[in-house]
Amino acid sequence: MEQLQSEIKESAPELPENAAPAPQGEGGEVDVEKASKKQKIKKTFVYIGLYAFLTIVAIVVLFPFYWMLISSVKTVAEYELRVPTFWPKTFKWDNFALAFTGNLHLGRLFLNTVIVGVVSTILSLIVTVLSAYAFARLEFKGKNILFAALLATMMIPGELFTVTNYVTVNEFNWVGSDFGEWLALILPFLVSVFYIYLLRQNFMQIPNELYLAAKVDGTSDIKYLWRVMIPLASPTLISITILKMMGAWNSYIWPNLVARDLAHRLVTVGLRGEAFYDEILQKTNMPAQMAAVVLVTIPLLIVFLCFRKYIVRGVSRSGIKG
């Protein structure tokens, strides 16, 4: 990827540097020089337009983040000014504390979300690695049919599973019981056929000779999987881990159905609730709400900036959010 990018950079038809003041022709004729000068001016204009376009888009993309940040430190009075201020006059850091001490109980929500995220990520990694290995390396009857059948289930929209799984977890009496709600949050969407597929493709790229050589040496499958396959496939595994964690952080529909009580409530569900309705003012305390939104958004942005490569890899292949 990196290599490819730099290759393309080198070969890009026009670079801004080329658009800079024209170098003196190497003993060429005056006409040619004039023409190339004209062309270079034209190129410069094209680049100015291009950068202007990209900058405008970048501002539109960034503006909601900026507005969220400055709104989160405003006082209610300043937030409601006739002409909104683009930089807070006073910084009210208390808004952030309110997210933890107020009705939202953000600390508890973070804890719940981290528990669900970590447990489901670890379990799903184990299950995914084992089954991807079986599909990639082991021989058994009906392998191809089973794999095709699993892939076929990917066509079905998740909403269909949500409806019946809601019936199922209720029939198991999971909703309403303490341990049951954890199970309901973690188990139903634990195994992703797409991740099995992704990892299987990755495993298949590892030469089979390696496996046979290990077999000849009497290595067990588990040892081979642990020592050879997992290290070689680690970029994919990291991608899966991050996307899975992000999924737990962002999930709303399913947790909102099965776990609404505070002991199991996840971040997004709590955020959408009425936690910031101020009884005295008879309206929502918007700066405090924005502060909570900041606290939920920032961890994701930090993770993205640290693991950009892995997120981009995973996303470009899946098109699935979370």
Partner: peptide, 18 residues
């Protein structure tokens, strides 16, 4: 340009509403 992807649709929706 990639930033909107790593956000929570509900959280950022609330910012848009604001």
């Amino acid at each position: 340009f990639f930033l909107p992807y790593v956000t929570n649709a509900i959280a950022i929706g609330m910012v848009f509403k604001a």
